[in-house]
């Protein structure tokens, strides 16, 4: 039996995700955000989730915001929760219905990378001497002070790619790489929505951004382009 990680329905893509799971969600703003997988997760119904993502969603109709609005999220680990349109996050957080762990963006990326690389914790200068660093173990190396940060290892990662093959080898498109690349490595179950499916061998060995070993399921979602970030000049 040949390896084939491609699934044809969102129900198959989401199968087995349990209540109480920790879920990594790729994307940076609208680019590279696996919105179709998020909507499928909302349909699937898992609740009491911990979400790890750079942003805490925008609007109410789709993505992380919808998942939170449906009451499925208990806790969010995030670097930039408050932004234009983050209404659901603000409502739930101020009502005490959503826990927030605020993490510096680079520390978030490195905690995820470390999780995927089998490193349980690491020292970083980021956030030493600040509110975010309060209460964390401090250690000095060569005259500089660092705080201890623990890795993030998740149950599920939701990733968006530009191209994927049946082994789960992935390529991302420009800024769509962002958190998708480290997150793909740091979960027991990595689920990918890809704009394009390609034949095995079409992605050259030097061109693969995420090797298939990290990927469990791929679903083809050719939704097209993300929206323009802002009105453009002529």
């Amino acid at each position: 039996m040949a390896i084939n990680k491609i699934v044809s329905s969102f129900a198959d893509a989401m199968a087995g995700i349990k209540d109480g799971s920790t879920v990594l969600i790729g994307g940076f703003g609208a680019v590279g955000q696996p919105n179709h997988l998020l909507d499928a997760l909302t349909e699937q119904g898992a609740k009491d989730l911990t979400i790890v993502a750079n942003n805490a969603g925008s609007g109410r109709e789709t993505g992380i915001a919808r998942l939170m609005d449906m009451g499925r999220v208990r806790r969010i680990v995030c670097s930039f929760p408050r932004s234009a349109g983050s209404v659901v996050f603000e409502e739930l957080h101020s009502a005490g219905k959503l826990e927030l762990e605020l993490v510096a963006q680079g520390t978030l990326a490195e905690r995820i990378r470390a999780g995927g690389a089998g490193i349980p914790a690491f020292y970083t200068a980021t956030a030493y001497g600040t509110y975010i660093g309060e209460g964390k173990e401090v250690r000095e190396f060569k005259g500089r002070k660092y705080i201890l940060e623990e890795a993030i290892k998740a149950d599920v990662a939701l990733v968006e790619a530009w191209q994927a093959d049946r082994w789960g080898n992935l390529r991302y498109r420009t800024s769509g790489r962002n958190f998708n690349q480290p997150m793909a490595t740091a979960a027991d179950l990595t689920i990918v929505q890809s704009q394009h499916l390609v034949e095995l061998g079409d992605l050259g060995p030097d061109d693969i951004h995420t090797p298939g070993i990290y990927v469990d399921r791929v679903i083809h979602v050719p939704y097209g382009d993300p929206p323009a970030a802002a009105p453009l000049a002529d």
Binding site: A30, V31, A109, Y172, S175, G176, Q181, A228
Partner: peptide, 23 residues
């Protein structure tokens, strides 16, 4: 639309530019 900066504005890439992931 696939190229954005940290402020989530659509930006261009200069000749010689490179892209990496967040980590």
């Amino acid at each position: 639309p696939w190229i954005v900066n940290a402020g989530k504005q659509n930006v261009t890439l200069k000749t010689g530019a490179s892209i990496v992931g967040h980590a």
